[in-house]
Simulated scan of single mutants.
Amino acid sequence: MKVLVVIDMQNDFINGALGTKEAVKIVDSAKAKIDSYLAAGDIVIYTQDTHTEAYLQTQEGQKLPVEHCIKGTPGWEIAQKVYVSGCQVIEKPSFGSIELAELITGMKEIQSIELIGLCTDICVISNAMILKAKMPEVPMVVDASCCAGATLEGHQNALYAMKTCQIEVIGGKDDDSV
């Protein structure tokens, strides 16, 4: 069985408080990837960045003072265009999710894990590194064409770091140049 992890494809990261034109551009390719996994009978898991009204008082909020993904707000919701009902959703209060790693570790006969989503240089890389540390022998892939970073430079740096840590990076303009 293959697992696709869709990281934080939420309204606030696409066209809301922290949205970017790069994030908007990946929505259709992310949806196509999700549909292909489901059509093959594989597993799709979503993560959902989840903050409270006290976000600005948190360490993250002190360093990134932009309220976003406040639970229950439209910005917190997974974008309707990419969400498929019935798939598991893991709410996470920070960049990476130990709960996600434990869930996947508990699954039987995992052939591979693929990650897509937002933001490459924050939450995608955090979850990829946690998963790689927890399951070093499971092949792991990040599809760069279905990811966007907070900045283009951050996106490229994160792809390079993941590739260096033996996470296969596909879908770039030139997969070997990342």
Rank of each mutant, 00 (worst) to 15 (best):
V3E: 05
V5M: 15
V6N: 13
V6L: 13
D12L: 07
I14T: 06
E22D: 15
K25I: 02
K25P: 11
V27H: 07
A30E: 05
A32S: 11
K33R: 15
D35W: 08
S36K: 09
Y37G: 00
A39E: 14
A39L: 09
Q48E: 11
T50C: 10
H51A: 07
H51I: 11
H51G: 10
T52N: 05
E53W: 01
L56T: 04
T58M: 09
E60N: 05
L64S: 14
H68I: 07
C69P: 15
G72D: 13
G75Q: 06
W76S: 09
E77W: 01
E77T: 03
A79Y: 04
K81A: 13
V82P: 03
C87R: 06
Q88K: 15
E91W: 03
E91F: 00
E91N: 09
K92I: 01
G96P: 05
G96I: 01
G96L: 06
G96F: 04
S97P: 04
I98K: 15
E99H: 10
T105N: 13
I110M: 12
S112T: 04
I113G: 07
L115M: 12
I116D: 02
I116P: 00
T120R: 08
I122L: 15
C123T: 05
C123E: 09
V124Q: 08
M129S: 14
K134D: 03
E137F: 08
V141E: 14
S145K: 06
C146S: 04
C146Q: 08
G149P: 00
G149Q: 00
G149N: 02
T151E: 07
L152Y: 05
G154V: 11
Q156R: 11
Q156M: 10
L159Y: 05
Y160F: 06
A161K: 02
M162E: 00
Q166H: 08
E168M: 07
I170A: 07
I170L: 07
K173A: 12
K173V: 04
D174N: 14
D175C: 01
S177D: 11
